Simulated scan of single mutants.
Amino acid sequence: MSDTVHATDVVIIGAGPVGLFAVFECGMLKMRAHVVDALDMLGGQCTALYPEKPIYDIPAHPAIDGADLIDRLAQQAAPFGPIYHLGQQVTSLTRQGDGWRVGTDKGTVIDCKAVIIAAGVGAFGPNKPPLEGLERYEGTGIFYLVKRRQDFAGKRVVIAGGGDSAVDWAISLSEVAAQVMVVHRRAKFRAAPESVSRLEALVKEGRVEMVVPYQLSGLEGEGGTLTGVRVADLDGQEKVLGADALLCFFGLAMNLGPIADWGLTLEKHHIAVEQRTLATSAPGIHAIGDIATYPGKLKLILCGFSEAAMAAHAIHPLVHPGEALHFEYSTSKGVPGA
């Protein structure tokens, strides 16, 4: 355990869009926040999985990339001076007097009056194909997400998978890569119909090559540099695709991680909450965003934003006991430095 014990009003677990907006909502109610996230960057899945993919259901933004949304949410939270503890996972959550003590796997210890869990789907990682020598090329030739599509400019790219991520990135990378090849075990894709139509049009134009029905069977390269991807058809016949990069989109392996051991009431790998306050079964701990569940729950970022506001208001009496909370609009209250 660290020799230093931090003290704050609220600890927010998760630095995704909903967690970042919770910083703002807490700040507007004069509650200080520390934020902990297992990733070494802000943004959660928005940053890890689709930083350059447009999101269309954020109010007042007809379209906004995941990375831009995170940047703006961080700017919105900045006036309230949040302290970020990134690249570390919360491993312990214990009652401490009238509040809670939060501990991480890096030895960080934070005492607080309340906790907001905004951990998205919990711990997640990519489902990896069972290929010999896979780890030798990870990070140099094999990737499970795209942070910047320009990293693949002028390269021969093989994309494996049949869902939205595979189709969307095939469409996007066709604009910058030297060659894009899509490997899938069948001709039908599990992606949005409009996206599939766009992909089919690119195939007809010769900008994307379909490699179906095939599946990954091996890797070729030297010294950690990928040079080719072996694929096999349903009869086991193999061929080699010359490649500089392999993008594998086989979905995410998700689990609650240590959250499952915190004694909270769970429903199908989600945290059950009271809809009006987002309170969990443990007093002073609230859950918002995708990890929270209640009757009629919608897994939308905009719903998570609303939940952040409701949780902050519910927590206020714990942080400022006996202090009346008079509801004010931001246009009247303003923000620090504005």
Rank of each mutant, 00 (worst) to 15 (best):
L173F: 08
K53E: 07
L20Q: 02
A338S: 06
R101S: 14
W262Q: 11
I142G: 09
C26T: 05
Q88S: 15
A279S: 14
A63G: 09
A253G: 06
G107I: 09
D244Q: 09
F124I: 00
W262R: 03
A166R: 14
P59C: 05
G44E: 03
L266M: 15
L49R: 13
A15Y: 06
G223E: 02
F249R: 02
A308N: 01
I288R: 04
A191F: 06
G120L: 05
F249P: 00
H85N: 12
I13P: 06
G337Q: 03
V90L: 10
C26P: 07
I271A: 05
R198S: 01
L93P: 07
L39M: 11
A243F: 03
P317D: 06
V35L: 10
G81S: 15
R101L: 09
P213V: 08
L278G: 04
G161P: 09
R148Y: 12
M254A: 09
V196N: 12
G284C: 05
E238A: 04
H85I: 06
K113G: 07
I117S: 12
I142T: 09
D68I: 13
R136N: 15
A177C: 11
H6M: 03
L93H: 08
M210A: 10
V36W: 09
P59K: 11
K113D: 07
F189N: 10
C112I: 03
P213G: 09
